[in-house]
Design a protein around this nucleic acid. Structure first.
Lengths: 139, 139
DNA sequence: CATATTTCGTTTGTGTACAAATAGACTGTG
DNA sequence: CACAGTCTATTTGTACACAAACGAAATATG
């Protein structure tokens, strides 16, 4: 028997997680067509912090430097976030949500929570907690 | 209290899954730098089937038409897959792995299984089964 | 204090991922 | 048989995601 006969694509975590993420993104974009999950994550974290450098925001939202730059650029283009170089450290680009950004965040935060609910809807409450717990241990 | 105060990014399934997928991809590319998880998935499924149309392969690997085209194009460019229009249905592009593609698949299938093992390593055997079971129900 | 190292941001290039539009080929129904 | 609807593949445009390389600024270390 060939080794490769053991390999069943549908049973690999990577494949299953990719599909689960696809479904989640579909739910998100149905409930919040105005922005992507990534953009919302960055805006949410920035609203929570009040302000942060671009790099810092990237680390806290698990986006690498190139990715966070693109996301921030799009948020800035929509006037949801402002950016200004920091006087005390001219390498850093300090970001803050605009009034419009904060308003949008408050408007959609309940919807974003609903996205999580709908994503987890096939599971009962205990299973939902268990899934989150297991996923967190994979990180 | 503001509704948005309930929203904690780190507790949303979407965010946690994105991070888990990131870790998985990092493990994959460390163990199999020669191709991406997506390319391997397409190649694996095609080897399993023997042959399939591009559309069919896309459906079975959960890639939309534009995505599967890009993936197949890159596999063809590396001579891992051949493509030819089907005589009996000229809309369809029939794909098959080349000898080189099959060899590569057999070579890396054990590595790909190892990727799954390492990804799930933080969990014990029972937890691993539970996680897979829960994720599958989210799809 | 001089410079090696680190940090931050940017740019470029490649690879998913999906929406929407298009063209060509097939199928079903009248 | 005609032709409306469906299916397949392609193209275009936008948005993550990461690697690698770069310059500028800050820090550490000798």
């Amino acid at each position: 028997m060939d080794q490769s006969d053991n390999y069943v694509l549908e049973r690999q975590v990577g494949f299953v997680m990719r599909r689960a993420v696809q479904r989640h993104i579909a739910i998100f974009s149905a409930l919040i067509p105005e922005m992507t999950p990534t953009q919302f994550a960055a805006l949410a974290k920035l609203c929570e912090l009040g302000q942060a450098s671009q790099n810092e925001l990237g680390r806290l939202t698990s986006m690498d430097v190139a990715t966070i730059k693109g996301v921030v650029d799009r948020l800035r283009a929509r006037d949801l976030v402002t950016a200004a170089p920091l006087e005390s450290d001219k390498r850093r680009l300090m970001l803050a949500p605009t009034r419009k950004g904060r308003t949008l965040y408050r408007k959609y935060a309940p919807q974003a929570a609903e996205v999580t609910r709908q994503t987890l809807a096939p599971l009962d409450a205990k299973e939902q907690r268990e899934l989150l717990r297991l996923l967190e241990r994979l990180i």
